[in-house]
C-alpha cells in the first residue's frame, strides 16, 4: 500500500452509476481520491484546469451527452500532458466495435459495467491494483477487455 492516495476520476452521466462507483470504493477501503464528472465536456474542463491534480486512472463512460467518451479519449491522447493517465473504458456496451475502436485509439483497459455490486467491487479492486506498467507493455486485444 502506498501512503499517497490514488487519484481516480470517473466521467459518467449516469447518477446511479456514479453512486455505485463511489460506494464501491468506499467499501473497498483503498486510499483513493475519487472525483466524478457528469459528462465529457465537464471532464475535459476539469482536466484542462491547471489546478487539477491529474488522475492516475480515468474511468471513462462512452455514451455521454455533449461530448462522448470516445471523443474525450481522442482529445486526451492528443495531449502529451495526459500521457501518464491510465484510461479505463467503463461502459454498458460490450460491442466489438466499441472495444476495437477504443483499443486502437489508446485506451488501456475495457471494463463492461457489471450487473451486481459484488462484481463491481471486484472489478474496481482489480483495476486499481493492476501493475499498469506491466499491463500496458503487454497490452493486446485479448487482455484489453477485463475478464474476471
Amino acid at each position: 500500500m502506498q501512503k499517497e492516495f490514488l487519484t481516480i476520476t470517473l466521467a459518467d452521466d449516469d447518477e446511479d452509476d456514479r453512486l455505485f462507483f463511489q460506494d464501491a470504493f468506499e467499501e473497498l477501503k483503498i486510499n483513493t481520491n475519487v472525483t466524478t464528472c457528469n459528462d465529457g465536456v465537464e471532464l475535459m474542463e476539469y482536466l484542462s484546469n491547471p489546478d487539477t491534480i491529474l488522475p492516475n486512472i480515468l474511468f471513462l463512460d462512452l455514451n455521454m451527452p455533449r461530448k462522448n467518451g470516445f471523443e474525450c479519449l481522442l482529445e486526451i491522447k492528443k495531449e502529451s500532458r495526459f500521457d501518464n493517465i491510465a484510461i479505463a473504458i467503463y461502459s454498458t456496451s460490450s460491442s466489438e466495435e466499441d472495444i476495437e475502436n477504443t483499443f486502437v485509439h489508446g485506451a488501456n483497459i475495457y471494463i463492461k459495467k457489471p450487473s451486481d455490486f459484488a462484481t463491481l467491487k471486484k472489478v474496481l479492486s482489480e483495476v486499481v491494483t493492476l501493475n499498469w506498467q506491466y499491463h500496458t507493455s503487454g497490452l493486446n486485444k485479448e487482455n484489453f477487455l477485463l475478464r474476471l
Binding site: 446511479d16 455505485f20 455514451n63 454498458t92 460490450s94 460491442s95 457489471p114 450487473s115 451486481d116
Partner: peptide
C-alpha cells in the same frame, strides 16, 4: 444499439440494486 445499451442499462441497474 438501443437494445445493447439503453435496454441493458436499466436492467443492469435493477440487478445491481437487487444485489
Amino acid at each position: 444499439y438501443a437494445a445493447s445499451h439503453d435496454l441493458q442499462e436499466p436492467l443492469r441497474k435493477i440487478q445491481t440494486f437487487i444485489s
